[in-house]
Design a protein around this nucleic acid. Structure first.
Length: 296
DNA sequence: TAGTCGTGGAG
DNA sequence: TCTCCAAGACT
């Protein structure tokens, strides 16, 4: 008997790695000579941010700050400006803080150890393993939103992934090829499968290398049963107001007074609350004479 | 653990 | 137009 779960069948991990060889996108941070530092920069930029928007900014950053020490020496204001409109600008601040930590505590060399990576500002479970795996070629389970969705369907037969769980790492590790080099390739390949084929909307199962082994399809592609995940509002939220305020300050070459920030948002209460939160986050600084500016 | 933190393209 | 959502981290 040679069913889908037959021991003689090619493991799904191997199928996914083979698929990746022909389907992978040609992304600049995937070229072999890219330094772990540049990989770290790419991973932080890619947090919650589409590839197309990251690519041009990443090219500028890696050319301008080719090592952690280069970024560490830069004033925060320049880093925030260079972040442009990638969104979640606290990431820029944390990346600079990580560069400083790498310079001071690791002799300017990005650590390859997952625990040491996770100790860096802005580097969590995902990013630490991504750097160890893609930057240093270490065998590491790497779980992002794409991987969780692939595993939810392929392994658990569910239409959508739930929240991140500790078991996610073991789930994907169980599918990885035995060979270390292929396991590294597998980590990026599963992400790519989730990004290109096993997508959040309507999955392109016709293009999937493991469609015949997918628990979700074998179960008849049942719809999502759990609670609908709520999508974040944006219009009118503090996030929008903070973005507007920062937009004004990025454009200004000199510190500005409070009046200069009024056009950013009408509601004075919300405007000042958001300005205060930006000060708290260290994204904005107040000068001695009470003017506002990006932090030096 | 659920809420917060930007931005803009796609369907 | 409006909803969804894109390689998370942090609190």
């Amino acid at each position: 008997m040679t069913g889908p779960s037959s021991p003689t069948a090619t493991p799904v991990g191997e199928l996914i790695v083979d698929w990746y060889a022909s389907a992978a996108r040609d992304l600049p941070w995937r070229t072999p000579e890219v330094a772990p530092w540049a990989v770290l920069v790419s991973e932080v930029m890619l947090q919650q941010t589409p590839v197309a928007r990251v690519e041009p900014v990443w090219r500028v950053w890696t050319a301008r700050w080719p090592t952690p020490a280069d970024l560490a020496a830069e004033p925060a204001a320049e880093v925030i400006r260079a972040w442009g409109k990638l969104g979640y600008p606290r990431r820029a601040l944390r990346l600079r803080e990580a560069a400083i930590a790498i310079t001071e505590r690791h002799g300017g060399v990005v650590p390859s150890d997952v625990a040491e990576l996770e100790a860096l500002p802005g580097v969590g479970t995902y990013t630490a393993r991504a750097v160890a795996c893609f930057g240093y070629g270490r065998r590491q389970p790497v779980v992002d939103t794409n991987v969780r969705r692939v595993v939810a369907r392929l392994v658990h037969g569910r239409a959508e992934a739930g929240n991140a769980r500790a078991a996610d790492l073991a789930d994907i590790a169980a599918l990885a090829p035995e060979d270390d080099e292929r396991a590294v390739r597998f980590s990026v390949a599963v992400m790519e499968l989730g990004a290109l084929v096993c997508v959040a909307g309507t999955p392109r199962c016709g293009a999937c290398p493991v469609r015949d082994r997918c628990a979700w399809r074998l179960a008849g592609a049942p719809p999502h049963d759990g609670p609908p995940r709520r999508v974040q509002k944006f219009a009118g939220t503090d996030r929008q107001v903070r973005g507007r305020l920062l937009d004004v300050l990025r454009a200004a070459r000199e510190p500005v007074d409070a009046a200069a920030l009024e056009p950013a948002w009408d509601d004075a209460v919300q405007r000042s609350r958001c300005l205060y939160s930006l000060l708290t986050d260290g994204l904005v600084e107040q000068t001695e004479d009470g003017l506002f500016t990006l932090p030096g």
